[in-house]
Design a protein around this nucleic acid. Structure first.
Lengths: 123, 123
DNA sequence: GCAATACGGGATAAATTTATCCCTATGCAA
DNA sequence: TTGCATAGGGATAAATTTATCCCGTATTGC
């Protein structure tokens, strides 16, 4: 596993939340787990753009950060369920706020962002 | 300038806000500009951990995303002032929410995060 | 002329994050 | 026996983001 070389700054709330919430799929994972999609295979189906591997890695980090717990059922084929901890649940409204802003400004954002790509030829 | 090779997903609000808000210093820049620190040199002083270069780059992106405007005064030495657009202002509460969560859980987060670094030797 | 101020940006290196590929394990069904 | 479902993880490549280094502009003051 990759080991960081530079110690992160932890000066303010933004630094701190960034440490646990940065990561392409983390917020979605928390969101979907909160919605009741607790099994890895379900999460994978909800987030098809992410590879199985990456989801595992990011789930592991969420677990290390005590945002989710992982319960293993000793059955075959294996069954695993993730749940939010209270700490993790406290993030749901925060993620909701982010998502809402994005949804609210959806049109404008899509236009702005895709401009960058269509403009590529103009330079 | 770096040119992306992979077109981002823009499926949901989280994807969209991520496109404009990811970036190590962007939220801080918006926050400080909102607090009235409008000049590049001021921002640099408020965020000493970032290099001048990176701040320029990220400010440029914020500008491209219409979150800030850049006003140049034709004087020497040069004077530049950034301001939030209405669009940018609408992000302030969102950033506030993130920062508050981090502040609220400061103790716990610091402990969790720094554990990762002190544990390095145990493996 | 030379330094300081305030701002900008090219080129490149380093760090970090994501993606790909491939292998392991278990019991059931065909 | 082969294949499927379910879950996990090592090794490595590719993409992306940050950091470093260094140069350029124009004016004021010494």
């Amino acid at each position: 596993m990759y080991e960081r070389k530079i110690i992160p700054n932890l000066n303010c709330g933004l630094d701190l939340i960034g440490e646990v919430l940065y990561g392409k799929w983390k917020m979605r994972l928390l969101w979907f787990i909160n919605e009741g999609h607790q099994r890895p295979s379900e999460l994978q189906r909800k987030i098809p753009d992410a590879s199985r591997r990456v989801l595992n890695v990011q789930l592991k980090e969420l677990e290390d950060h005590e945002l989710v717990t992982r319960k293993i059922y000793p059955v075959v084929p294996p069954k695993v369920e993730y749940s939010l901890t209270e700490f993790g649940k406290s993030l749901i409204p925060v993620i909701g706020t982010l998502g809402d802003w994005g949804d609210t400004h959806q049109e404008r954002l899509k236009a702005l962002i895709s401009k960058k790509f269509t403009d590529t030829n103009k330079d």
